[in-house]
């Protein structure tokens, strides 16, 4: 697959000339609560997303991981508590990108999906076609540029959604279980794209149930349980010496109910 032969230095060079000073990072959440239908799903959540780090959010289903991503993206506003993005009370435009677990692709070609996003991000019309093809090359989808996006395989769709998010040159990339239900090969392709983005200086927050993926990709780990952060530290610390019984159970693969 040609994306594996991607010239990393070329990508880094491109990022250097385009990346402005960070505006959205660090993202600080303090005392954040979020209610859905009277139920408090996020409760007293405190978390800092640091620049140039890859953070994995882990925890059992219903811990509030996906909601936390939506809060960090600014898609939803907290019921209580505070979130700030650098100096800002709302994320600067297109500084935080979010890739959903089941990506929504437009009913048009692979290339047109990227072009649409570039237009939304305000990329100049003249350079869009080239920029879009460059992103498709990066995702290994250049040969499929004219195919209907919704006819792609699950792994290809996820790669497309990922480079569509990267089209904004975001400071922070949020990923909600990007490799759930993908086979190892497709997972590897996604992980390489994430690592390439991180190498360019993009911070990453990743929600995953795959602890192997956490070890492969994450610098830091935040462990969520019942809408709170129980632990937050480096990945090594977390795996070697979990501080709470819940985290120890989770790492050991015991069911956390």
């Amino acid at each position: 697959m040609n994306f594996m032969a991607l010239d990393q230095s070329a990508v880094i060079g491109q990022a250097d000339k385009m990346k402005p000073a960070p505006r959205a990072l660090p993202v600080r959440l303090s005392g954040v609560a979020y209610d859905v239908g009277g139920l408090r799903l996020i409760d007293g959540l405190g978390l800092t997303v640091a620049p140039r780090r890859r953070l994995a959010l882990i925890g059992p289903n219903g811990a509030g991981k996906s909601l936390t991503l939506r809060l960090v993206q600014g898609l939803i506003r907290p019921t209580a508590g505070e979130i700030c993005w650098g100096e800002h009370a709302a994320p600067p435009a297109h500084s935080v990108a979010l890739v959903f677990q089941r990506p929504t692709l437009l009913r048009r070609s692979v290339l047109a999906n990227i072009r649409h996003a570039l237009a939304a991000y305000g990329a100049p019309r003249a350079g869009r076609e080239d920029a879009a093809m460059e992103l498709l090359e990066m995702a290994g989808l250049a040969d499929l540029a004219d195919r209907p996006a919704r006819r792609l395989s699950g792994g290809e769709q996820q790669r497309l959604a990922l480079v569509r998010a990267l089209a904004a040159e975001p400071e922070l990339l949020l990923l909600d279980e990007p490799t759930a239900s993908l086979d190892p090969q497709a997972t590897q392709a996604i992980e390489m794209l994430i690592e390439a983005a991180a190498a360019r200086g993009t911070s990453v927050v990743l929600v995953t149930h795959d602890l192997g993926q956490v070890r492969r990709l994450a610098d830091d780990v935040a462990f969520l349980h019942r809408g709170r952060v129980l632990e937050h530290g480096t990945a090594d610390e977390f795996f070697d010496e979990p501080q709470t019984q819940e985290a120890a159970d989770f790492v050991a693969g015991r069911l956390l109910l």
């Binding site: 435009a93 959903f100 939304a120």
Partner: peptide
């Protein structure tokens, strides 16, 4: 309904 979250992450104007 299906596109709404995508549109909001892209910050599309209503016109777009």
């Amino acid at each position: 309904e299906e596109y709404d979250e995508l549109f909001r992450t892209l910050r599309l104007t209503r016109f777009a």
